[in-house]
Amino acid sequence: MKENVKRVVVLTIIILVSSLSLYAYYTSTEDLIREQETAKLTEEINQIFPDAGRFVQKEDIYYVYSDDGDLIGYAFKATGKGYGGDISILVGVNNDEDLTIRKISVLSQSETPGLGTRITEDEFISQFNNKPIDAIKLRSNNGEIDAITGATISSNAVVNAVYTEYKNKIKSIQR
């Protein structure tokens, strides 16, 4: 009987102490983690919009303003199913007549090293620069993007993700 009670008491105390210390540690680092995430996002947006001054988030869309306060473009995240898992992409859109793609950048991927990972290289990525959305298809699909040899699935995943998410997001962009 006494042994039974001891079991419950010891396990409960251990769990209580664990939860409390985790709670304390989490609340003390929460701001730092959020800061890191914002810093990372700012850096990524700055890569696409080097002239960006600040950005405002509204419903998963980042409205990017220049230092003078002019709206220079939009950015949003897109996710595609690659060969080795999800590919996460940040898409920058110009604030022009046709809302052309400004630039894209791959935030995270787990593709095959040496083949699929080449989707992060400039040779592939720069094909998207300043293209209208209708050109964002693989060349075999009457588009203007050349797939990477040996990594068609990864290339296709990026192209599809950008295209689909663009069509989704463009409806809710407030100009």
Partner: peptide, 21 residues
């Protein structure tokens, strides 16, 4: 169960630390 709770707590601390720094 006691070991697992202790280990999981430590791993979570490491995870938060890596995320922050």
């Amino acid at each position: 169960p006691c070991f697992i709770v202790i280990i999981a707590t430590l791993v979570t601390i490491i995870n938060i630390t890596f995320k922050a720094y």
